[in-house]
Amino acid sequence: MRRTRKDWNLILIVALLGVAVLLPLAVRSNQYTLVLLTTILLYGVLATAWNVIGGLAGQLDLAAGAYLGLGAFTTGTLLIRWNISPWLGMILGGLVAIGFAFLVGYPLFRFGVKEVWYALSSAALVEVLRVTFLIWSQVGGPVERYLPYHEWSLYHLRFATYMPFYYIMLGMLVLALLVNHWIRHSRLGYYLMALGENEEAAEVLGVNTQGCKLQALAVYAFLVGMTGGIYACMYGFIHPNFFSGPMSTEVAILGIVGGLGITYGPVMAAILLVSAREFLRANLGGQLEGLYLVVYAAVLILIALFRPQGLGPLVRQAYDRLLSRVAKE
C-alpha cells in the first residue's frame, strides 16, 4: 500500500507530538532546560497566534506584549485578590485583551484607512499600557506583585516545577496551530487572503474587510491574552514590564521570519531564534544581553530583503525533497 502525502504529513505530526510530549521527561531534573523549552513553546504560541493577524490578515501588529500583559494582570489580579482560578482568569484575560484590541482596531480597520496606522498604534499601545500600569499603583506599580505560592495546585495553576507549565504551553501551541489551520481553510481564511491581496477587489466581492480583520484580531488577542495568564503563573508575579515593546517586536519577527501565513512557520522560527538567543545569553554573559535583539533585527531585515516568504517555504521544499526520496525506496 503506497502512502499518500497526507499520510506522511500525519506521521510527521504524530512523531513531532510524541517527541514534544516525551522531551521534558528526559530532562526532568534540569530546570534550566525545562524553562528554555517552555520559553520556546511560549514564543511558539505567541508567534503562531500572531500569524493570524500578521500572516493571514496582513496587519503588522506590534502589540503582543500588550495582550500578554493584559492577560497576565487580569489573571494575576483575580487570583491575588479574589482567589479566582487562573483557568477562569485566562478566559477573562483573553476577553480583556480583545477589548483593548478593538479599541485600537475598530477605527483603524475601517476601509480606506492606511494600514500603517494600525502598526503604529499597536506599537504605541504596549508602551502606553506599560506606563499606565507603572503609575497605576492600585493594580500595578513599580514593584512585582507576587502570586500566592503553592507547591502543586491545579486550581491555582501554581507549581514548584516547570514541568506542568511545559505541557500546558504545549497544549496552547496545539490549540494555536489548530486555530491557524482551521481559519486558513475556512471562508474567513479566503476572505483574509483576498483582502491582503487587494482590499478594493475583496470589498466589491462581498468581503467585509473591517469585520474580517477584527475577527482575526479577536482570535489573536484572545490567544495571547490566555497565554498571558499562564505566563503570570509561570513567573509567579505580575509587573508592568510584561508590557514589553521588545517582546512584541520579537513576536512579530518570529512570525515574519517563519513565513507569513504559513501555519508551522512561526513555531520553527521560534525554535530557531529563541535557541539562538539562549545560546548568545549563555556564552556572552549578561553584559551583552541586548545583543540578541540586534541579531533578531538583523535577521528580520535580511529575511525581508532576500527571503520575504520566510523560512517556512524553504523547509517545505526540503521536506518535499525528502518525501520524494523516501517514496522512491
Binding site: 503588522l60 506590534l62 494600514e115 551583552l288 540586534v294 531585515i301 525581508a304
Partner: peptide, 28 residues
C-alpha cells in the same frame, strides 16, 4: 528600495527591523 514590490507588511517590517536594530545597538 528593495522591498517596494513586496507586501506592505514586509515593507514596514524592514523599517521596524531598522528601528529595533538601532535601538538595541544604542542600548548596548
Amino acid at each position: 528600495d528593495r522591498t517596494l514590490r513586496q507586501r506592505y507588511v514586509t515593507q514596514i517590517a524592514v523599517t521596524v527591523g531598522l528601528m529595533t536594530f538601532l535601538r538595541a545597538l544604542a542600548q548596548l
